[in-house]
Nucleic acid binder design. Structure first.
Length: 262
DNA sequence: ACCTACCTGGCC
DNA sequence: GGCCAGGTAGGT
């Protein structure tokens, strides 16, 4: 149960206002945790309601570029840029640190968050078998944008960011600039498999600590050690040993191999 | 498809 | 000082 909620003055809370936030979370249990795409959803329930209707309120957290969640000793001095602290009855404190403040926190019912437009509509996840090839094909065929722009569009497909979009395109042998709707069925199959492999690798290694990413235990991931193209412009392609090229697609730095990716 | 903005910090 | 960075939103 949440005993006390503390918010930093600058904060990452987008909705509702801080007093409402505190009122609506203190005394409630953090009942379950789910994830969809880059959002973490924590379902609240009414503590002491014993079998009554659950509040159906949820806490949605997006870590942005530099957000970090951790469970800490409440007595420990919070690190700089700590924007949310939830003191729990378990004795631990759930903390959100985010020095760039691109992260976001919202609290409310799904309907409410939608109505206030503080929770974007998220597309399906193209991995973990959550999306059939048929459904994935339909998404690709509907878009004449560059493939990478589509992969990064969370309203169409949820979960891929700049690193894994590049990695998946490389594994599939497809240029990030390829027009999504023009991919052949064979290439679409390769792409879905490539996305799955890319994210399986990343999650097994607990993420890519290219810079300051740390997992919920404050540990670095190890996936940055096996990235094939991201951050490797000018270096040899791991497959053909030609030079990897940097360009910009959808406003984001993009690295690919002009020989292996067509 | 492009800009700009939102932020801090590391690097040159 | 300028540029860049894992993300997204808003405007043209």
């Amino acid at each position: 149960m949440v005993r006390r909620a503390w918010l930093s003055p600058v904060g990452v809370l987008r909705y509702p206002d801080p007093p409402s936030f505190r009122r609506r979370i203190v005394g409630h249990n953090l009942a379950s945790v789910r994830r969809h795409g880059k959002f973490i959803f924590i379902d609240l329930d009414g503590a002491g309601d014993h079998g009554s209707v659950p509040a159906s309120e949820l806490l949605a957290i997006h870590l942005g570029m530099t957000g970090r969640l951790s469970l800490d000793d409440p007595e420990a001095v919070p690190p700089p840029h700590t924007h949310l602290r939830l003191l729990l009855s378990s004795g631990a404190e759930l903390r959100l640190q985010d020095y760039r403040r691109f992260g976001r926190v919202v609290l409310g019912s799904l309907e409410e968050l939608r109505a206030h437009r503080v929770l974007p509509v998220l597309g399906p996840e193209p991995f973990n078998g959550a999306l059939t090839q048929r459904q994935f094909d339909a998404v690709l065929r509907r878009s004449r944008r560059p493939l990478k722009a589509l992969l990064l569009d969370q309203s169409r497909l949820a979960g891929l960011g700049n690193i894994y979009a590049d990695e998946a395109c490389f594994r599939a042998g497809i240029r990030p600039t390829a027009v999504a709707a023009k991919l052949t069925p064979e290439r679409r199959r390769r792409l879905l498999r490539a996305i799955d492999d890319t994210l399986a690798s990343a999650t097994e290694r607990r993420g890519s600590s290219v810079d300051d990413y740390r997992d919920g235990f404050g540990e670095k991931g190890r996936n940055q050690e096996v990235l094939l193209v991201y951050g490797r412009a000018g270096l040899p392609c791991p497959r053909c040993h030609g030079t990897l090229v940097r360009t910009v697609v959808a406003g984001r730095t993009t690295v690919y191999c002009p020989r292996c990716q067509r």
